[in-house]
Amino acid sequence: MARDVQSNAYGPRSAIPYLRSRPHPDGRSTHVSLIALSRDTVHPEALRDSVRVRAGADSVVLTFLDGTTVEV
């Protein structure tokens, strides 16, 4: 977790999680992170269950409960 003071738009104090790992054996890997910005309480299990993720060779498709899909 990286911590700094007044370094971004999320407020004077924020912590930004990040992932570090050894190189992947094939030289490539896909990492997906979903961030919910809300003033309400967000339960991790509900967030996990509300989005389906399908990773392909060149893209990641997110499908939300309402049927909306986003491909990145």
Score class of each variant (00 low, 15 high):
residue 28 R to L: 05
residue 28 R to V: 04
residue 24 H to G: 00
residue 31 H to C: 07
residue 13 R to N: 14
residue 56 G to Y: 01
residue 33 S to I: 12
residue 43 H to G: 15
residue 22 R to Y: 07
residue 52 R to I: 07
residue 55 A to M: 09
residue 55 A to T: 12
residue 9 A to C: 15
residue 20 R to W: 02
residue 46 A to E: 09
residue 34 L to M: 15
residue 26 D to L: 01
residue 15 A to G: 14
residue 19 L to T: 04
residue 18 Y to H: 05
residue 34 L to A: 15
residue 54 R to K: 09
residue 47 L to Q: 12
residue 48 R to Y: 11
residue 34 L to S: 13
residue 23 P to Q: 04
residue 29 S to C: 13
residue 27 G to K: 07
residue 12 P to V: 09
residue 29 S to P: 12
residue 39 R to Y: 02
residue 7 S to V: 15
residue 25 P to H: 10
residue 23 P to M: 06
residue 7 S to I: 15
residue 26 D to F: 00
residue 55 A to W: 06
residue 24 H to T: 00
residue 53 V to T: 05
residue 30 T to H: 01
residue 30 T to E: 00
residue 56 G to I: 00
residue 26 D to T: 01
residue 11 G to E: 06
residue 46 A to D: 10
residue 16 I to Y: 12
residue 52 R to G: 07
residue 55 A to E: 08
residue 40 D to S: 07
residue 42 V to F: 03
residue 25 P to E: 10
residue 27 G to A: 12
residue 22 R to C: 08
residue 12 P to G: 10
residue 7 S to F: 12
residue 8 N to G: 08
residue 32 V to M: 01
residue 34 L to C: 13
residue 25 P to I: 13
residue 21 S to H: 03
residue 19 L to N: 04
residue 7 S to L: 14
residue 32 V to S: 01
residue 46 A to L: 14
residue 22 R to A: 10
residue 34 L to H: 13
residue 10 Y to I: 09
residue 19 L to D: 04
residue 26 D to S: 02
residue 50 S to E: 00
residue 31 H to N: 06
residue 23 P to N: 06
residue 54 R to Y: 07
residue 51 V to I: 09
residue 42 V to G: 02
residue 55 A to V: 10
residue 38 S to I: 02
residue 25 P to V: 12
residue 13 R to E: 11
residue 24 H to D: 00
residue 40 D to I: 05
residue 13 R to S: 13
residue 40 D to G: 06
residue 56 G to S: 02
residue 29 S to G: 15
residue 20 R to N: 04
residue 10 Y to K: 10
residue 48 R to M: 11
residue 13 R to Y: 09
residue 36 A to E: 15
residue 43 H to M: 14
residue 48 R to S: 12
